[in-house]
Simulated scan of single mutants.
Amino acid sequence: MDEQDKQVLGFCGPGLMGAPMIRHLLRAGYAVRVWNRTPAKAEALAAEGAQVAATPRELARETDVVLLCVADASAVEQVVFGGQGLLDGAPGEGMRVRRIVDHSSIPPDATQAFARRAAAHGVAWVDAPVSGGVAGARNGTLAIMAGGAAAEIRAVAPILAAYAARVTHMGAVGAGQTTKLCNQAIVTATVAAIAEAVSLARRSGIDAAKLPEALAGGWADSTLLRTFVPRMTQDGLEPIGALKTFQKDVDTIAAAAAQTGTPMPVSGAVQQLLRLAAAMGLAQADLSGFIEVLQTPRVSQP
């Protein structure tokens, strides 16, 4: 192992995405210390070689690079700057960590503010949101869009290679998060469109489950089509996320669009569909839950 490989890593947030990412790091030979707000999720990885930390602050004292994969900007701020957070305390006080890599999907302006606060502690910030879903995390084929100084991206690239097929440097801090918003604008609109197609097929009396086969090789064919049609037409599949995550991302897209004066009428329609889903009690539904909104019973005509 060279000097890069000897780095000790910390990881906050071993959830649906984070846990398989940690497993890839362990298989790649890294020493990994993990923390989670719900200790059981961290402790589940101990049998696979991870060491469990009691607090994020403990990670900052014992690791060189800390990776985050948490729910939102509020969670990032709490984990990094809150009580017993990574950077809780005077700058440099008892700290080993030199880089924070944030895989969470949060607003670009929040990322930039966090990076400035971390810099005061001598810690570099890389925003590195991911795409590829749970399957990509499990298969080690995630796409990472990164923001930060070029030297910092190069320094963490070998670590990210443990679970990513591709890391693209998009620009300064915040650029990775902006790219993720572009990704989510495409993903959420496409999944909503797939739900509309499945709904139309069902109401027209054809077998919606055959859409991926029928459309294979054509312009409508895509990974999302092949992933979500089965999820919209079959019961009992393991969830791959919650609609509330899509809603958070689309609300962030709307805020970025307002800040930049960018017309985004399609994302606006998806935002309203997600708000309707939440009002129907579907915030915790699987990402395929668009279909549950669109398949509400029809009102009979008089």
Rank of each mutant, 00 (worst) to 15 (best):
S267C: 15
A201T: 00
H24A: 09
G122N: 06
V80R: 06
R96C: 07
N139R: 14
I186C: 15
Q272E: 13
A28P: 11
A28V: 11
L287R: 11
A90P: 01
A164N: 05
T63I: 07
A75E: 03
Q301I: 09
E196G: 02
R231V: 10
A164I: 05
R98L: 09
V270A: 13
L287V: 12
G15T: 05
E77D: 09
D64K: 00
G281E: 12
A73M: 04
R202V: 01
G10Q: 02
Q177K: 10
L294G: 01
E48I: 08
A257K: 11
S199R: 07
L200I: 01
S105Q: 01
L215Q: 10
Q78D: 13
L142A: 02
D249P: 07
A242K: 15
L215W: 00
A216C: 14
G174E: 01
E3H: 12
R27N: 15
P91V: 05
L59H: 04
A151N: 02
V66K: 01
C12R: 00
M17N: 06
P230V: 09
V52T: 04
E48C: 08
A75I: 05
A113S: 03
V76T: 10
L276I: 13
V167C: 04
V134K: 13
R275Y: 13
T262F: 15
S204D: 08
P265G: 12
L59W: 07
C182M: 15
A71Q: 11
L67D: 05
G82A: 08
I194F: 01
